[in-house]
């Protein structure tokens, strides 16, 4: 059987090709990022024209897929690949299985309701398309002797025009290797109040992270800083959740922490059922007290 890997980053390409190797005899990689060699049997590379968006590469992708004869598609869940995977799924008369974090005998395991549940599902169609979360095939090595083949960009009939692009500011947040994290939530009413968390974090040598609304709602933090099902998954020794209610979507990002410590003014906040140590109190009182005492 053939597998078709759709990826845009190098890490993504490597991991998905390694995974594809476990389930298929032949692996075709399709990428519009940098071409990667040594991971698949064939690497198809497409250069997106300056004024086009990668999402509009779908005619080329679908054609290459048809030519590959693959029955399984593993796709990297970036914004653009997610959109291409959808086009490809529709082309192959199926739906993509989203958020896959384990794949066995065609049955995919995905997060359901932000972590409230775990869903197992299986495509019943001729072709299966899976969007695979990072880390699913951790630890397997990709192999291949591929050469790179350039693919032509075939514009769809109606397409978008890219007028400009800019690099997003790089953040120096490193949650992955932090052993202590202080995460801030909507309990912080004002941006100035974040200083309380920063002071405390610098006192104990912790990274500062946040819940999604503080990053994508009010933009007080870069996107790398939010923890949760759609953000970073972290495993520090100690995780402080400050002014975070404890919604599943957030907690699945920190459930593997050694100790979870909660500060919240509402004693019915769900976080208190998921913490080791907690205090019902105003973060404006509790954080300074902690900073002072430690």
């Amino acid at each position: 059987m053939n597998a078709f890997v759709l990826a845009e980053t190098e890490n993504g390409a490597r991991e998905l090709c390694a995974g594809a190797r476990q389930i298929a005899d032949e692996v075709t990689l399709f990428t519009f990022g940098n071409a990667v060699t040594g991971v698949a049997d064939k690497c198809l590379h497409l250069q997106i024209p300056e004024d086009a968006i990668a999402d509009d590469a779908y005619p080329s992708v679908n054609e290459s897929f048809d030519a590959s004869g693959a029955k399984v598609v593993l796709a990297e869940p970036t914004v653009r690949v997610t959109s291409l995977a959808g086009r490809l799924a529709a082309h192959a008369n199926t739906a993509a299985v989203p958020g896959v974090n384990a794949l066995k005998d065609g049955v995919a395991t995905s997060v359901y309701f932000g972590g409230t549940g775990v869903k197992e599902s299986k495509p019943e169609t001729d072709v299966s398309v899976y969007l695979i979360s990072a880390g699913t095939f951790d630890g397997t090595q990709a192999t291949g002797t591929d050469t790179v083949e350039e693919v032509e960009f075939k514009a769809p009939e109606k397409l978008a025009v890219k007028k400009g692009t800019a690099a997003l500011p790089k953040s120096d947040i490193d949650l992955a290797s932090a052993d202590k994290i202080v995460a801030c939530g909507r309990g912080f009413a004002k941006e100035e109040d974040l200083q309380l968390a920063r002071d405390f974090a610098s006192k104990i040598g912790a990274e500062v992270a946040c819940s999604r609304p503080l990053s994508e709602g009010v933009n007080w933090f870069p996107r790398e800083a939010y923890v949760g099902v759609s953000g970073a998954v972290v495993k520090p020794d100690v995780y402080f959740a400050v002014g975070i209610s404890g919604q599943m979507q957030h907690m699945v990002g920190c459930n593997d922490s050694g100790t979870v410590i909660a500060i919240n003014s509402d004693k019915n906040a769900p976080i208190f059922k998921q913490c080791d140590v907690g205090i019902v109190g105003d973060l404006k009182d509790v954080l300074p007290a902690l900073t002072k005492a430690l």
Binding site: N255, V260, K273, C275, D276, G278, V280, G281, D285
Partner: peptide, 12 residues
């Protein structure tokens, strides 16, 4: 679910 100790204090 991870088993957490749930030792919760009250500032008031």
């Amino acid at each position: 679910q991870a088993d957490r100790k749930q030792e919760v204090f009250d500032a008031s």
